[in-house]
Design a protein around this nucleic acid. Structure first.
Length: 573
DNA sequence: GCCGTTTTCGGCCCGACTGTTTTCAGTCG
């Protein structure tokens, strides 16, 4: 059975071939839109179809729904097969080279019979490209340069790796150039889970000096282009960073435009144009050309009667519609978090002592912190036996008597075994303040087996929280196969919370799943899974992910004061 | 191909940059 990503990928390939064919751009956009929507769905299309929900998805019409059904039934799509037969696979790959779009790839294929990046490189080296209609010597040289660039480039990197890099640029420019405003924009500002490049926006009395300073920053490996208002560089980790200087009166307009998302901006501009306005990175204008604003983001939205949503939520998931009603809910913030419940210490595979964690948590303004070391079943993690866990609990309770302003909770991250049983007997689980149950093994079970396994763990009355529910590691390991809606329905019914794990490679649940969890009434907890004191600060990435999933403080248990928090745990309900 | 409290037909975001152009096409974000 094809999964959502397979189906989204097939639609994307259809898009690429239709572009090569020069098909109607709006029809192409419909497929592109469908691919984007499908890759963001938290549930398998097969489940959505089973309850008759396919056509209810905005952007999926009669034709595309029928194609989805065909793929679910037969495992492929005739239209896709036919289109793919029209071009060799390598022609699609050619379009991954920067600057090579469908027109160029199509021309090179038709005129020169070029069918891969390697062949394209050879054609350029042999000088066979310049002279073609629309191609000169510069185009030919540019193609070679861009192929080399593609081969040097890294792909997308996790948010938590890109974030400090952006900070370094901001700090570096503040220290070495006359910047006034400086703000990262793009997907980093939206706190998307992975980042393809970094956009930084500045204003300055001397933009040229800023551009020159960018090229001199120590983490810059290569300067791609530098002009009076824009400089593009590749950093030592292979990530592209663009720095743009704009006029102060356009800062808000440029920030809004560069932050996106694309889908958010398209929706916004469509709406604006119907109401007689025009939006661009230079401001908001009436049809008459009169400029209404652009110094701040707020000035861009106000004339449209749309409330400003935080960047994390600008994904065209209903924020514009709600903003039109003037409603912006209060979304969860780091300052709302009163305790981190998933922290490892040197009792298992962490580095810090109990005391160090207590002090670090207190320093971050927390009321409580959950010590959640691994159970013994996970040999590699130096897990706790029943005896050591009981000894740790004794020490934690003793330590609490000496602590002021912070309470350590005996948590415990217990393995969910392959058969769904837990790694500690129930009488031990009962002694904990809080039990996190997590999958750390047998990642490749079928959806049916994996779902049954996790549901069995949720049967245990002492399980309060499902830790990193899907087990995915961004860029390294796929999520386990789960009927996530089924798991969430059961969790909601029993009052089991689901984790938003802040670990940079996890961010698990992800934003789309958090949206579903809220819809189904599943309580959330945002935790770091810290293995050292510094990791406690990664909470910001979990909080950002929760915000992307529209989580409000009331959805997140660890925004509650200690007594109320404990009362909401499944075991105490 | 999708969508609709201004439309079931006629729209569908906007601008910069680049190289090839003699007024524009292609790509990108």
């Amino acid at each position: 059975m094809l999964g959502n990503n397979d189906i989204a990928r097939i639609f994307e390939e259809i898009v690429e071939i239709m572009e090569l064919r020069g098909d109607d751009v709006f029809r192409i956009r419909a497929y592109q839109n469908a691919a984007r929507i499908i890759s963001g769905l938290p549930e398998p299309l097969s489940d959505i179809r089973a309850r008759g929900g396919l056509r209810k998805i905005s952007g999926i019409g009669e034709k595309i729904a029928a194609k989805i059904e065909e793929m679910l039934d037969t495992g492929h799509l005739r239209k896709h097969d036919e289109l793919m037969a029209e071009f060799p696979a390598g022609v699609l790959e050619m379009m991954t080279v920067p600057g090579i779009g469908p027109r160029t790839a199509g021309t090179l294929y038709r005129e020169l019979g070029v069918t891969s990046i390697d062949e394209m490189e050879r054609a350029a080296r042999e000088g066979r490209i310049h002279g073609l209609r629309g191609f000169g010597e510069k185009s030919e040289a540019e193609i070679l340069e861009n192929i080399a660039r593609l081969r040097r480039r890294t792909g997308r990197i996790p948010l938590a790796r890109a974030f400090p890099l952006a900070q370094q640029f901001v700090e570096g420019l503040k220290a070495t150039a006359p910047v006034r405003d400086i703000e990262p924009a793009g997907s980093l500002r939206r706190m998307k889970e992975d980042i393809g490049d970094i956009d930084i926006l500045v204003t300055s009395d001397d933009p040229a000096a800023v551009m020159a300073a960018v090229a001199r920053l120590p983490m810059v490996r290569e300067v791609l282009l530098t002009g009076p208002t824009k400089t593009s560089v590749i950093t030592d980790v292979g990530l592209q960073v663009d720095v743009r200087a704009v006029e102060p009166e356009n800062f808000g307009a440029a920030l809004q435009y560069l932050t996106g998302s694309k889908a958010h901006n398209v929706k916004l501009r469509t709406l604006a144009s119907r109401a007689g306005f025009k939006l661009s990175e230079y401001g908001i204008f009436r049809d008459t050309g009169e400029r209404l604003g652009g110094r701040t983001e707020e000035e861009m939205y106000r004339p449209l009667g749309i409330a400003v949503f935080p960047p994390e939520l600008r994904e065209d998931r209903g924020e514009i519609e709600l903003g039109l009603k003037g409603i912006v809910p209060e979304f969860v913030q780091v300052a709302h978090i009163r305790g981190d419940l998933h922290v490892h210490t040197d009792w298992s595979d962490g580095r810090a002592t109990l005391e160090e964690i207590a002090q670090a948590a207190k320093a971050r303004g927390y009321e409580y912190v959950g010590i959640a070391d691994h159970s013994a079943g996970r040999g590699i993690a130096h897990g706790l036996t029943t005896e050591r866990l009981r000894e740790q609990m004794r020490q934690i309770r003793a330590l609490n008597d000496t602590l002021d302003g912070i309470t350590l909770l005996c948590a415990g991250e217990v393995d969910i075994r392959r058969d769904g049983t837990l790694d500690f007997p129930d009488d031990v689980l009962a002694e904990l303040d809080l039990c996190i149950a997590s999958v750390h093994s047998s990642f490749t079970l079928s959806e049916e087996e994996q779902t049954a396994r996790v549901l069995k763990a949720l049967d245990n009355p002492y399980v309060d929280l499902l830790g990193h529910p899907t087990g995915r590691l961004i860029g390294e390991r796929e999520p386990i196969s789960l009927n996530i809606r089924r798991i969430m329905e059961v969790a909601a019914e029993r009052g089991v919370a689901m984790e938003v794990n802040s670990w940079p490679e996890r961010l698990d649940l992800n934003d789309d799943q958090i949206l579903l969890a809220r819809e189904l009434g599943v309580p959330l907890m945002i935790n770091t899974d810290a293995h050292a004191v510094d990791h406690l600060d990664q909470i910001r990435f979990g909080v950002a992910t929760a915000r992307r999933g529209w989580a409000e403080p009331k959805d997140v248990l660890n925004t509650l004061p200690l007594e109320q928090f404990l009362a909401r745990l499944r075991r105490n309900r």
